[in-house]
């Protein structure tokens, strides 16, 4: 019965990569509320297991975990088979939440950090997704929700190493949208502005611009339900980024963004 590759799984199932991030957890809760079976993949197995048990208790759904290191490309095929065993087939959809943001100034001096950033934020995502996509395409069904960032919309001096890796990710996801435009596979690109997570804690960001992880989870889930292609979290970031992207270069170069 394992791995019946060309049938749509009978129960709805979703795999969440980077599930220990508070946004990943919040998205998992949204799916659990809709009775999805859930697989949580993260590099931090202890926390991941606690998050899974919590979801089982709260929502009485199937929830399992797998250890996953985005940088360990060579082993990605292994846990793909592990996942397909766990949900008896390929999942209906995939959510990508993991990410890494190095301190900009350190990254400028230390190439290892740049490599790590690109490995996790870009290559890791591509490596994982491509392994599922072939199957999705074959059965003409599935969805992808991936968290990129507004930082990828225009390179800024305060954050361009991280920003460029997210920029590449956005381009890649746009490519997928194009590839699947005529099929039954949906790709949702999420571009958060500021979210109140461990990635940004301690930065004293302006309160009004920040979304709580639960809020972000709800917004992302709703956008997915509504078949959106791109969602900014929160909505006003679309307009903030519109302005930043269209600032004429001679003005932009003088800003402190």
């Amino acid at each position: 019965m394992l791995n019946p590759s060309n049938i749509i799984p009978s129960t709805k199932s979703v795999v969440i990569f980077g599930s220990v991030s508070s946004v990943g957890r919040a998205i998992a809760h949204e799916f659990a509320k809709q009775n999805y079976s859930i697989i949580l993949c993260d590099i931090n197995q202890d926390e991941n297991e606690r998050i899974a048990k919590d979801i089982q208790i709260r929502y009485k759904v199937f929830c399992d975990t797998t250890f996953f290191d985005a940088e360990d490309f060579d082993r990605h095929h292994e846990f793909i088979s592990e996942i397909t065993k766990k949900v008896c087939g390929y999942p209906e959809g995939i959510v990508i939440c993991f990410g890494y943001m190095p301190p900009q100034e350190e990254a400028q001096k230390n190439f290892a950090l740049v490599k790590k950033t690109v490995n996790i934020n870009y290559l890791g995502v591509v490596s994982v997704l491509e392994k599922f996509l072939e199957k999705f395409e074959e059965r003409n069904h599935g969805f992808i929700i991936a968290i990129s960032s507004v930082a990828g919309d225009r390179g800024r001096k305060s954050n361009y190493i991280y920003g460029s890796s997210k920029g590449a990710l956005t381009r890649y996801l746009e490519g997928l949208q194009h590839r699947f435009a005529r099929s039954n596979i949906r790709v949702l690109i999420v571009k958060p502005g500021f979210m109140d997570t461990s990635m940004t804690y301690g930065m004293n960001l302006p309160k009004r611009l920040i979304a709580s992880p639960e809020e972000a989870g709800r917004i992302i889930f709703k956008s997915w339900q509504k078949n959106k292609q791109v969602v900014y979290v929160k909505w006003f970031w679309r307009y903030i980024m519109l302005i930043i992207q269209h600032l004429p270069r001679f003005i932009f170069l003088r800003t402190q963004l």
């Binding site: 508070s22 606690r50 998050i51 048990k53 919590d54 208790i57 709260r58």
Partner: peptide, 8 residues
């Protein structure tokens, strides 16, 4: 943020 149910 440490608000997980551990056992029931």
């Amino acid at each position: 943020r440490l608000n997980r149910f551990i056992n029931w």
